[in-house]
Computed example of a mutant assay.
Amino acid sequence: MVKILGRRGRVLGAAMGAGFGLLAAAPVLAGPFEFAPSPQTDLNRVYRVDRATGEVGACQFQLKEGGVGLTVCFPSGEGAGPQTPSDYSLMPSRHEREGGIFRVNLRTGEMSICYVFDDKTVCTPQVK
């Protein structure tokens, strides 16, 4: 059975089609986290920053005797917890023996160095 739509049905159908087209063409928004590896070439550590709060953490692979390895994560410690809300990013240095990473505030230009110390991720105070 074919139903013939009047003008209202055609306008509604066209609007719905355009809406679906916009949804399909919309860019996928980035997640709230950014990840970057430690610049140290013999360290398998990856840092994570919450882009809005600046909170930093790190994880790395660790061998386990007699079995599959495991992921060890270092929670936020001194200076690595949430900061003033802004737009944060991670920036590795080019120093191949550096285990830490820069946390940068893209709005203010402030930076700090974050690294793992005593099973916690810690960061120096932010400065410009």
Rank of each mutant, 00 (worst) to 15 (best):
K3T: 14
L5R: 13
G6S: 07
R7H: 03
G9P: 01
G9N: 07
R10T: 12
R10V: 13
G13I: 11
A14P: 01
G17C: 13
G17M: 10
A18G: 07
A18C: 02
A18T: 13
G21K: 05
G21V: 14
L22S: 04
L23T: 09
A24E: 02
A25G: 09
A25Q: 03
A26W: 11
L29V: 09
G31I: 08
F33R: 00
E34I: 09
P37S: 13
Q40T: 08
R45N: 04
Y47Q: 02
Y47M: 09
R48P: 05
R51V: 07
A52S: 14
A52R: 02
A52V: 06
G54R: 01
G54F: 03
C59I: 11
Q60I: 07
F61M: 14
L63C: 05
L63G: 13
L63M: 14
K64R: 15
G66R: 00
G67W: 02
G67C: 11
G69I: 04
L70S: 13
L70W: 04
T71A: 05
V72Q: 10
F74N: 04
S76Y: 02
S76A: 15
G77Q: 08
G77I: 14
E78Q: 15
G79A: 01
G79Y: 03
G79K: 06
A80T: 03
A80R: 06
A80K: 12
T84A: 14
P85F: 09
S89W: 00
S89A: 15
L90R: 05
L90V: 01
M91Y: 13
M91I: 06
S93H: 05
R94Q: 10
H95P: 00
E96P: 05
R97C: 00
E98Y: 08
G99I: 00
G99D: 08
G100H: 09
I101Q: 04
F102S: 04
R103F: 00
N105T: 06
L106D: 11
R107V: 13
R107T: 11
T108D: 05
T108K: 06
E110H: 08
M111R: 13
C114D: 04
T124F: 07
K128E: 10
K128C: 01
K128A: 14
